[in-house]
Amino acid sequence: MAGGLAVRIAHLYPDLMNLYGDRGNVIAIYRRCQWHGLAPELLRITLDEKVDFRDFDILFVGGGQDKEQKQICMDFTKVKGAALSDAVEDGVVLLAICGGYQLLGKYYRTGTGEEIPGIGLLDAWTEAGRKRLIGNVVISSDLVRVGSDHTVVGFENHSGKTFLGKGLRPLGRVLLGFGNNGEDGMEGAVYRNCIGTYLHGSLLPKNPALTDYLIGASLRRRYGEAQLKPLDDTIESIAHEAAIHRARQPVGR
């Protein structure tokens, strides 16, 4: 691993925003970097730390409980928001899940009509829903391709319903499950190298093609090109297929 290209990964609020095994995504990025012969470096960044995120290659933020989400909301909009936007405009890879995804949008409207501002990096907004959208999800995404397969699998558990503005691309089309809002058949959002999504499970370990897409994008930004050799993903593929199979069955039986 020594001598490999450095990949700087930042895990934002690992202490506060790690609701549904979100750290699995960071583990997946870190391990696959190692297996690709790169030299990953992981930094944890929490409240009140002012950072120039352009120095990093891959940023990750997960979901949190309501109380913690409020805490980081202030930090997100006041302390880190501008730096995050600058980094994404500069091509830095950012993956945001669930609560993190919601905070990248323009606002979150609560059940009482109160609007909690996001950083507005994504032309998207979220409204509190009455029903929790829970279950296994399969989507089809142009970002990944394994043979002719474009599927991404995960598990969703959210009550907020997110809607995308006209110019914003979704991460994929929902094949099974609810997605962004359970209404328009879209899941997640993609802007430059930033992906927001409701999928956890954890998301990346069972979708190695998506993980490699993120690593590849970060290498292209810093080093101009990226040649990732295929890894032995036998176990990951079995889990991917099993998750699709499970999503077709009734939940919990």
Binding site: N18, Y20, G21, D22, R23, G24, I27, I134, G135, F155, N157, H200, G201, S202, P205, R246, V251, G252, R253
Partner: peptide
């Protein structure tokens, strides 16, 4: 397993 009594969301394995 991921039946109701186990919890249908297995992301806890990553914690």
């Amino acid at each position: 397993n991921d039946k109701f009594a186990d919890g249908t969301d297995i992301s806890w394995l990553w914690d």
